[in-house]
């Protein structure tokens, strides 16, 4: 027991907030650097490469296509399969390859977030497969994956109600901070990933909301405000990435 207390004390020793700046010099409502590129995989119907701070993820979308095994088919709508997978080299300590409890859960909640926007009923008996590989992880990889998957789905020409944009908010040293990096996630008090459905340049609804740790009602409201602001910034970048691919296609050819 004393050992555990010692560990807890050690945890609290790390200072995350310095005045109005964070450990890496960002402001409380500042995102990490984001780089998005659409259509990077030739064999996939839609794909996306995304960097969000030190996170690096690649998403690929296949379909709508036939579903195998057959018994998974749904005669009234398309089935959506989402696979979140971390590469063994994506974290400091080698991760054992293959699905684990955590990645199965993330795949499930992310799939449910995307199911809310994809117009499944247009493709009965078919399936849409989404694969997202985490090549490098640094907190908030599920949000990075959802952002990448959303761009890849648009790139694949899948009909959707809108775009999914995802962002996390953490509580570090008692302050709500946007888009936490690893230290804030590990040593902070709470971590709240959000995913929003954006339609007509407005945030329409929440597609995913998780929380670990504890926050007060007011803190949650503050988290929500920060997340909305961050999501709109990411949405702009997602849009730019897709535009860039398709505009350059027509510009370079005259």
């Amino acid at each position: 027991m004393s050992e555990l207390n010692e560990k807890l004390n050690e945890k609290e020793k790390i200072q995350l907030i310095f005045g109005d700046k964070r450990l890496d010099g960002r402001k409380f409502d500042e995102l990490r650097n984001i780089k998005i590129e659409a259509g990077i995989l030739k064999r996939a119907d839609g794909s996306c490469y995304l960097e969000m701070g030190k996170n690096i993820v690649v998403a690929a979308v296949y379909g709508p296509r036939e579903v195998h095994p057959r018994h998974l088919q749904d005669p009234s709508k398309a089935v959506i399969r989402y696979r979140y997978n971390m590469a063994p080299f994506s974290v400091e300590e080698r991760k054992r390859p293959g699905p684990d409890r955590r990645s199965v859960e993330i795949s499930k909640v992310s799939r449910e977030a995307l199911e809310a926007v994809i117009m499944k009923e247009l493709f009965p008996r078919s399936g849409i497969d989404i694969f997202v590989e985490v090549l490098q992880a640094d907190a908030g990889s599920r949000t990075a994956c959802l952002n990448a998957a959303s761009v890849a789905l648009v790139d694949a020409g899948v009909p959707m109600k809108g775009m999914i944009t995802s962002i996390a908010v953490a509580k570090a040293d008692g302050v709500m901070v946007l888009d936490p990096m690893k230290e804030e996630d590990n040593y902070g008090e709470a971590d709240i990933p959000f995913a929003f459905l954006i339609r007509g340049r407005k945030i329409e609804s929440i597609a995913l909301l998780q929380m670990d740790g504890r926050v007060t009602k007011d803190e949650l409201k503050e988290a929500f405000r920060l997340a909305k602001k961050g999501a709109m910034e990411i949405y702009k970048l997602q849009k730019e990435a897709i535009m860039k691919k398709y505009v350059s296609e027509s510009v370079e050819n005259g």
Partner: peptide, 11 residues
Amino acid sequence: MRQIVLPGDLI
């Protein structure tokens, strides 16, 4: 040139 639209754009 025609404008490119994304899913969810109000048109």
